[in-house]
């Protein structure tokens, strides 16, 4: 298959030394195998995330996303924008929709963009990496490069909210999207029955209202154990961080004994494609995925 090229929007949390830097490393390994070319949008900025509404207002948020879109169009014309973070993807895609549907918002955004020397003419498509894998490659193509099947490993596919709603991937239902399960299966792994697949982890409230978020996360982890999963796999950086990092605090509060690894789909794919533990950034997990590390070391 010919090399596919995209304009890459990594997002703040993927930067070197940031909370999902292991996501980026594993995405790069995965893309190498699949011959996906990711060119970073030059000087991209934060999209403001969902929580940006409090101080940001509508137009400043649109301007932030508008700047990224204008930069992509200017420097990487004709390429789809691909994000790995659910919130970046959602925020940018929402901005695209609003700008395409409202002349007033578009006009105001253009005036603001002039201050940064930019201008929008054609807004590129805005896609999530998982969407690219499934729609531009497909399960068969994703199975082909597998050198180390995930036989015998059980995964709870935690889709979360923002990769699923409101846009969704591959026309799947909001209540029971199957793409993550199918992805795991195409790598030879087993996707367990998992009834908290699309439950919200609390999002940014994990920072501001930890009690509430912990109660949500407890349900999400418990259900993965109930399904017999060895690990949880997710497409979203904040889901990953929330579900992994607070297990200790939840254990303290609820007397549970949670200690289940939470991985990115890209880490799991990289291992199945024969990458080393380092290339799959398995050392970036706080709760280490020993079974995957063993497989990667084989």
């Amino acid at each position: 298959m010919a090399r596919k090229e995209y304009a890459f929007y990594p997002g703040c949390s993927s930067q070197k030394g940031a909370s999902s830097s292991n996501y980026l490393t594993s995405v790069q390994s995965m893309c190498k195998t699949l011959d996906i070319g990711l060119t970073e949008i030059p000087d991209w900025n934060c999209c403001g995330a969902s929580i940006g509404y409090a101080e940001g207002g509508e137009l400043p948020r649109l301007a932030l996303s508008g700047r990224n879109l204008a930069l992509a169009e200017k420097h990487l014309p004709g390429l789809d924008v691909v994000a790995t973070c659910a919130a970046c993807w959602l925020g940018t895609r929402e901005a695209k929709e609003r700008l395409e549907h409202s002349d007033i918002l578009l006009r105001d955004t253009q005036i603001a963009l002039q201050e940064a020397g930019l201008n929008i003419t054609v807004i590129p498509e805005v896609r999530h990496m998982a969407e690219v894998l499934i729609e531009d490659f497909g399960y068969d193509a994703l199975t082909k490069p597998v050198t180390k099947g995930l036989d015998g490993l059980k995964f709870a596919g935690y889709v979360g909210c923002q990769t699923n709603r409101p846009f969704g991937i591959d026309g799947e239902s909001y209540e029971n999207p199957k793409y993550l399960d199918k992805l795991v299966e195409s790598l030879g792994g087993e996707a367990v029955k998992y009834d908290q697949k699309v439950t919200c982890c609390g999002g940014a409230l994990a920072f501001s209202e930890p009690e509430k978020a912990h109660a949500q996360i407890k349900d999400i982890v418990e259900s993965a154990y109930d399904g017999g999963a060895d690990m949880i796999v997710t497409p979203c950086p904040l889901c990953q961080a929330n579900v992994e990092l607070y297990q200790g605090a939840i254990n303290k509060k609820y007397g549970t004994k949670f200690n289940i690894p939470v991985l990115y789909y890209s880490q799991v794919m990289a291992v199945a494609y024969g990458s080393s533990a380092k290339e799959a950034a398995l050392n970036g997990n706080v709760i280490r995925a020993k079974q995957l590390e063993a497989l990667a070391g084989k």
Binding site: N45, I51, G52, Y53, A54, E55, G56, L64, S208, E209
Partner: peptide, 14 residues
């Protein structure tokens, strides 16, 4: 707290 966090977040990013 979320109002507070939202404000800090925006100012940090901006």
């Amino acid at each position: 707290p979320t109002r507070n966090f939202g404000k800090i977040f925006w100012n940090n990013a901006a």
